[in-house]
């Protein structure tokens, strides 16, 4: 199964945020814009980190913002937010974070397939620095193997 479509309105380049909840909010806003989720999902993504800590920072500079499936997920969705200034999430090895990938999944079983695709993209260690330095949303799409069509 390919990744969910990554439309241009699900990509934010160079967001200015002061702290990690604002960074996750920027990802939530992108998922709302693209029609994948409602703003309630944003609150649940923040709640996951408040409950379990910064474990969502799964690689140097990268946070995978997500929560469980729920009524606030309208469709499987992916978003990418890059930060103008990196922020700390509180992870001992992988801070500071400059790229947030937001994931909304409608069902737990189906998501396993496109998470494998996500792993394929990021197994290239050049990808996170490339995304962090992206200047256009079209470039971000191309990193994920997608075009505007």
């Amino acid at each position: 199964m390919p990744l969910p479509h990554l439309p241009l309105d699900a990509i934010t380049i160079g967001a200015h945020v002061d702290h990690w909840p604002a960074a996750i909010t920027a990802a939530g806003d992108a998922l709302v814009r693209s029609g994948a989720a409602t703003s309630a999902y944003t609150d649940r993504m923040i709640a996951v980190v408040r409950e379990f800590g910064a474990y969502i920072v799964i690689a140097p500079g990268l946070a995978l913002a997500h929560a469980r499936p729920g009524a606030d997920v309208l469709a499987d969705g992916l978003c990418v937010v890059t930060l103008a200034e990196p922020v700390a999430f509180g992870h001992p090895h992988n801070d500071p974070v400059s790229v947030i990938v937001g994931l909304a999944v409608a069902g737990a079983a189906a998501h396993l397939h496109f998470v494998a695709e996500l792993a394929n993209v990021f197994n290239d260690p050049a990808v996170i620095p490339a995304l962090a330095g992206a200047t256009t949303a079209e470039f971000v799409q191309s990193v994920f193997g997608q075009t505007a069509s």
Binding site: I58, H66, R68, L103
Partner: peptide, 15 residues
């Protein structure tokens, strides 16, 4: 193991 059992743990499982 991850916090909620999907997403991050699925990536870790694949790799």
């Amino acid at each position: 193991m991850c916090g909620i059992g999907l997403g991050t743990s699925a990536i870790l499982k694949v790799n």
